[in-house]
C-alpha cells in the first residue's frame, strides 16, 4: 500500500470532496498533506490487536426515542429565504445533466 501523497492523489481528493483547488493550492496541499499523513503514521506503532474501535461516544444506558407527536417545524418561506436561489416551494439548482445552455 502506498501512502504517498502526490498531485494525482490531491486531484482525486478534489473530486471526491467537491473542492476545486488553484494550482498554488495543489502544490501547497500536496506538500502539507504528505507531512500530515507522515505525522499520523505514528499510529502504526500503537498496539491495537484485539481492540474494539470506538466509533461513537455515548454514555446513555438506553437509546432514547422522542414521543411520537406532531410539533411545528421551521417556516418554509423563511427557510427558502436563505437560499441563493429558490422558486415558490423549492430550492433551485443549476442543471444537473447535459450542456449548460439555458
Amino acid at each position: 500500500m502506498s501512502n504517498k501523497i502526490d498531485r494525482d492523489v490531491v486531484h482525486h481528493l478534489e473530486r471526491l470532496a467537491r473542492i476545486d483547488l488553484s494550482p498554488d493550492e495543489v502544490e501547497m496541499i500536496t506538500e502539507q498533506l504528505g507531512r500530515i499523513v507522515g505525522f499520523v503514521e505514528k499510529l502504526q506503532a500503537a498496539n491495537v490487536e484485539g481492540i474494539e474501535p470506538t466509533s461513537a461516544m455515548s454514555h446513555e444506558a438506553t437509546e432514547h426515542v422522542r414521543d411520537d407527536v406532531v410539533t411545528s417545524s421551521l417556516d418554509r418561506a423563511v427557510v427558502l429565504g436563505q437560499a441563493p436561489d429558490a422558486t415558490q416551494e423549492y430550492f433551485r439548482v443549476p442543471r444537473v445533466i447535459g450542456k449548460a445552455d439555458e
Binding site: 500500500m1 492523489v9 481528493l13 496541499i29 499510529l43 500503537a46 491495537v48 474501535p53 466509533s55
Partner: peptide, 23 residues
C-alpha cells in the same frame, strides 16, 4: 476536509480511520 476524505477513501479506511478508533 481533504485529509478527512483521504483517510476515509477506498484502501485507506482500515489503516487510518479504524486504527484511530482503536487507539
Amino acid at each position: 476536509v481533504l485529509l478527512g476524505t483521504y483517510v476515509l477513501s477506498a484502501g485507506y479506511y482500515d489503516a487510518y480511520y479504524r486504527r484511530a478508533q482503536q487507539v
